[in-house]
Design a protein around this nucleic acid. Structure first.
Length: 297
RNA sequence: GGUUUCGUGGCCGAGUGGCUAGGCAGAGGUCUGCAAAACCUUUUACAGCAGUUCGAAUCUGCUCGAAACCU
């Protein structure tokens, strides 16, 4: 059975003009766009996450943009489910869907699926986090070593997020998280075409600096001030927001905060590239040439 | 002109005879439910010259440079 439906995924670092390309593609194929971005899905975040403009959002249907609240917990599994549904919906109209985004893990979850792990009761999770907050990393390390020694041997032992995850799974299911990790890539009922945008580093850095300046001119600081009461939320541990919270706490000057945003955005872009370069199925392009990309498809 | 204090890697900063300071930035990387997160690896020093010493970023002298005060 050959698959006659396809999802075109545009990946690449932040500020590489992916949004623009995705809009052109969607217009060309008369289809919709699924955003694969862990921050643009939040309706409360606007200027700092470089969303498409109102006009662009009206001209093309976008999924996973403004679809969630920063109060909700959004993660790779939520995205996988949401995006698969969206694709199904799009395929009722046409044979091609466009996905665009920079969140590597979300895209991986969409393409390959995640192993089934039973949902963890939030009270278990909260208790672990509370204990960790009070007793620190060494407590977490001891707990994991005691409860799940096989996982402990093979994990990043100083990475609290991974340790918390392993601990909550074994406490809630009685089984090690390693038992759930089958590493089976799910087969999707559609083709996946991956296109990566890779600009020269100097160009990318220049784009980033210009975009940060533009965000400030467009009122990012005002947006951040309004969100200040919620700054503890994970969704606000975001480049462009956390630095301005620090500025508002007088930890450094506005000028320093802006420099930090630029630096952190460049670091983020580098991490994105590291992730996507590992994916051998990505077809890399250095120019935003629609014809060239359509030729690949 | 004089007195004093100081000069540590791209930046901040500890060290006052022998033992990797550390942080930031830079470079490279990891990744199955917080991923714009979290974590790992890593390059670059002791202003210069001469001296004391087995051994000097650390002590002495001179030179250069900076700051403060005095005239």
């Amino acid at each position: 059975m050959t698959k006659h439906k396809s999802v075109i995924i545009i990946v690449g670092p932040t500020a590489s003009n992916k949004t623009n390309l995705s809009l052109q593609l969607a217009a060309h194929f008369n289809t919709s766009i699924i955003s694969a971005d862990s921050r643009q899905c939040f309706k409360e975040l606007n200027i700092g996450v470089a969303k498409p403009s109102q006009q662009e959002l009206q001209s093309t249907k976008h999924y996973f943009i403004n679809s969630h609240s920063i109060q909700e917990s959004v993660n790779a599994q939520v995205f996988e489910e949401y995006a698969l549904k969206a694709v199904e919906e799009i395929f009722q109209q046409t044979d091609i869907a466009v996905m665009v985004g920079g969140t590597g893990m979300y895209i991986k979850a969409f393409c390959e699926g995640l192993d089934e792990i039973p949902e963890v009761d939030s009270s278990i999770r909260n208790q672990i986090i509370e204990n960790y907050t009070i007793n620190g990393l060494s407590w977490l390390q001891l707990e994991v070593e005691k409860n799940d020694p096989s996982f402990w041997q093979h994990t990043e032992q100083k990475n609290p997020q991974r340790l918390i995850r392993a601990l909550e799974v074994i406490k809630s299911t009685g089984k090690s998280i390693t038992e759930f990790r089958k590493n089976i890539k799910k087969e999707r009922p559609f083709n996946i075409i991956r296109i990566g945008i890779d600009l020269p580093k100097e160009q990318l850095h220049q784009n980033i600096e210009e975009r940060v300046d533009a965000m400030m001119n467009n009122g990012l600081l005002e947006e951040v001030k309004l969100l200040q009461p919620l700054q503890h939320l994970n969704a606000l541990q975001t480049v462009g927001y956390k630095e301005l919270f620090s500025y508002l706490h007088k930890m450094y000057s506005l000028e320093e905060a802006i420099t930090q945003i630029k630096t952190h955005t460049k670091q983020y872009a580098k991490r994105q590239l590291t992730w996507f370069k590992k994916d051998k199925l990505v077809n890399w392009k250095s120019k935003l040439n629609l014809k060239e990309i359509i030729a690949v498809i």
